[in-house]
Design a protein around this nucleic acid. Structure first.
Lengths: 209, 209
DNA sequence: GTCTATATTAGGATAGAC
DNA sequence: GTCTATCCTAATATAGAC
């Protein structure tokens, strides 16, 4: 593994564990047993490392969102999609845990992050629409735009919330609870026929919590 | 106004506007036209200022929550209660905007913040229970504990979310939208008779957005 | 209580040898 | 590519005069 990539990986791990602002360039170098000078040979500075990590995250999620537009998805695919989005966020969770700070300090990332959030909301709205069109959701009750915003809101703050409420909880459980949470946002709007399906989905996830 | 209080007020304003970590003790002193040395005469340091501000916030909210336990509240009182909680959070919004960072760095505040959140969830759960007992909400559909957590979740992250999505939005609008958001979490569970009331409430708030 | 001046430290970053 | 040594800056904090 090349030093450049090891720097990115080490930085990501430390940022996720300690919080971005509690990790210095020297910390990263120490953790890898290289000198700070060496680190600066590969990257202009800390900001440059973070921007690289953001690019990884951004293109990963963008690809996922694009796929969901192309593929015709079944109801179960929808849950799987939510699940995979959560996993991608988890990998780069420090962007979410220290969101406000990072967006206050790195303007370029802020711009791109906001763009991605809008793209996410739009995609989720389309998913909700498709659930209405297949009559899984009751059209009269649901404002699909409002529901999509609720789901995005949950995706955005689920990890900070869990860190606050259940610090040290394992990765799997956190994500399962997140999917459950989103499912429970949707259930009230489900048609009577599909409500049974949805509620059995709920109980499957509930058993894993 | 005593210098000590002016320091607290100035610090609060700057923290809310610029973010806690972007404001130094020298910034606070400059803004007030006093010397940094003078500031350190009144407070041991930045941490001490923040702890003082947190105490103000904590006791303010705790008092509100206590009142809600004592008083018998009508349906409209409940909305007013949510509204007032939002206002209190807004006054000290930097604790919410930079939540993870502040809780990572100031352990004493972290402890107290978590305790307050638990108290909040408990109080909101009681409110939901009372809505079920007066048959405003459908008992069979709603897990009052789940609903209470959803409402708390919204209270916790509404301001960071609005800053992300609608930066520069006015204070009134943000809070109205927040109340609307919480209302829309509850409406699906409302009994048919009360649903009309709830939905008219919704449209009142909607008109103010 | 308030000021000026200064010490201390930590983090980010560079220069130059190997 | 990597190291050692060093610089620069910003932020916290203190000492001592007024």
């Amino acid at each position: 593994m090349k030093t450049r990539d090891r720097i990115l990986l080490t930085a990501l791990t430390l940022f996720n564990e300690e919080g971005e602002q509690n990790v210095t360039t020297v910390d990263i170098a120490n953790e890898m047993d290289i000198s700070p000078g060496n680190l600066y040979y590969h990257f202009k500075g800390k900001e440059s490392i973070i921007e690289n990590l953001y690019s990884q995250y951004d293109s990963g999620v963008a690809q996922l969102l694009k796929q969901s537009e192309i593929a015709q998805m079944s109801l179960e695919d929808h849950w799987y999609f939510i699940y995979v989005i959560f996993e991608e966020i988890y990998k780069f969770r420090f962007f979410y845990l220290n969101q406000t700070d990072i967006l206050q300090r790195y303007h370029d990332i802020s711009r791109r992050f906001k763009r991605l959030v809008k793209y996410k909301v739009k995609t989720i709205e389309t998913l909700c629409q498709s659930l209405i069109e297949t009559n899984a959701l009751n059209d009269s009750l649901v404002e699909s735009q409002q529901l999509a915003e609720n789901i995005s809101f949950t995706l955005l703050y689920w990890f900070p919330y869990q860190q606050l409420i259940n610090p040290g909880e394992e990765y799997d459980k956190i994500i399962h609870k997140g999917v459950y949470q989103i499912l429970s946002l949707i259930v009230p709007y489900a048609q009577l026929e599909d409500r049974t399906i949805a509620q059995s989905l709920l109980s499957i996830y509930h058993s894993r919590i």
